[in-house]
Design a protein around this nucleic acid. Structure first.
Lengths: 228, 228
DNA sequence: CGCAACAGGATTGTATACGAAACTGTGTCG
DNA sequence: CGACACAGTTTCGTATACAATCCTGTTGCG
């Protein structure tokens, strides 16, 4: 297999590259991430690949099974609920903080993000739009200037991307950018109360758009499904 | 150097052992964790040690510096504030959930934990008491049956232990067990409101007992201090 | 024909070897 | 006497080799 680029890969860059591929659903949940495959693909040794996979497993993006290998995580319905419960605890208050600390530069960043979301949707690149939608949430945490909470939210957003890949019901994603626009309005007014409320309902909307009723989750492959 | 035990160490057990040593302040903030030292101490190769250190760095218990080595993390004053802000967002609501789901078995676990805290304090083992005090908080998250939030809280508690090691002001730790007793009362009554409120003020008390005014944090060693 | 045992291949887990970077101490020059 | 440069030592970063485990296909027996 050809190498991906002539770039000199480090653990961090490999993690970032893999994470992006997972978030954009180029590596759907359940995909096996063989160490040899990855080391060949990146043109590096298994040592770095293993470190990268270990790092991703700590963020619950990759599931490590002893002597079996690494797989893109397949969050259970329970995981999905828990992730959104955690987001409900963290994000609304963080959005409030962000609103109070909002600057013109920060607003520009958020506006640009929303614009990119629109462009991606117009181009039919839904997965890329989803990725950018996640970036929007992480950016808010960054603006709130809370590194610790930001890292938690970042992990939760990433896991949400997997959850959406598995349980997304509606196909129309318009509600998404609509909510982001409303949040932007609140941020422009530096209205903390509104931002907190909007984020709260935005998350509830998201959760409501998932289909978490079924006992069986769509397996990425028959093999994996039967291994469970 | 002699090996610690004849045990066959895995990455997980090494992580757990190191984490406990850090939480009980046998490895104070700033301590250098040389890979060769650790591999000799545990009687394993550096491969596993490196994986363990990487895992601990993801929990912010260990700081990895490229080509310099691993050190027990020294949270900054800003880190300290952020950790307690995150705890304030997560723990009160989690205590409420725990109160509503409380069972007799869970109560027994919490009571036993408090008893151990007392025993440790009576025996003058303050660091062990601190470790157990942290366990109390994690146990509450476990009872709330929220694995995702539990893992966040677990990380925050561990970091709090480092923060307390660096910034603890009072020497009397009585307020600690007092607050835990009050929480237990609320849990026994399955009083979610009270549990949430008590946890909230408990965290504020904790934060207030820290000395976060100074610009300079006590360096664990002169060398490390000057390296910054 | 079906099931179980076994052997071969593939993949991961661990250890070790080598190269690179940084720290420490010494020596020389200004 | 002090500062800078350089070399030795230590420690980390990466690659590779070997061992252990698991998957898979085949074969033999009931």
């Amino acid at each position: 297999m050809n190498e991906i680029a002539a770039k000199s890969w480090t653990r961090e860059t490999v993690v970032a590259d893999l994470e992006r591929a997972i978030l954009e659903h180029r590596l759907p949940p359940g995909t096996k991430l063989g160490e040899d495959d990855l080391s060949d693909a990146y043109g590096i040794s298994r040592t770095i690949v293993r470190a990268a996979l270990l790092a991703l497993s700590h963020r619950h993006l990759v599931e490590l099974r002893r002597n079996r290998g690494a797989f893109v995580a397949q969050p259970s319905i329970r995981d999905a609920r828990e992730v959104f419960e955690a987001r409900a605890l963290l994000e609304p208050r963080t959005a409030r903080s962000a609103a109070l600390r909002m600057t013109d530069d920060s607003l520009d960043i958020l506006r640009a993000n929303i614009r990119q979301e629109h462009d991606a949707l117009d181009a039919g690149e839904n997965d890329r739009a989803l990725f950018l939608s996640g970036r929007f949430h992480v950016e808010i945490a960054r603006i709130a200037d809370q590194t610790t909470i930001e890292s938690f939210i970042s992990e939760l957003i990433s896991r949400s991307s997997l959850i959406i890949a598995l349980y997304w019901r509606r196909r129309a994603a318009l509600c998404e950018t609509q909510a982001h626009h409303a949040l932007l309005d609140a941020f422009e007014r530096k209205d903390g109360d509104a931002a907190e409320q909007l984020m709260k309902s935005h998350l509830l909307d998201l959760l409501a758009s998932l289909d978490l009723r079924h006992v069986s989750q769509p397996p990425a492959s028959l093999r994996e499904a039967l291994q469970r």
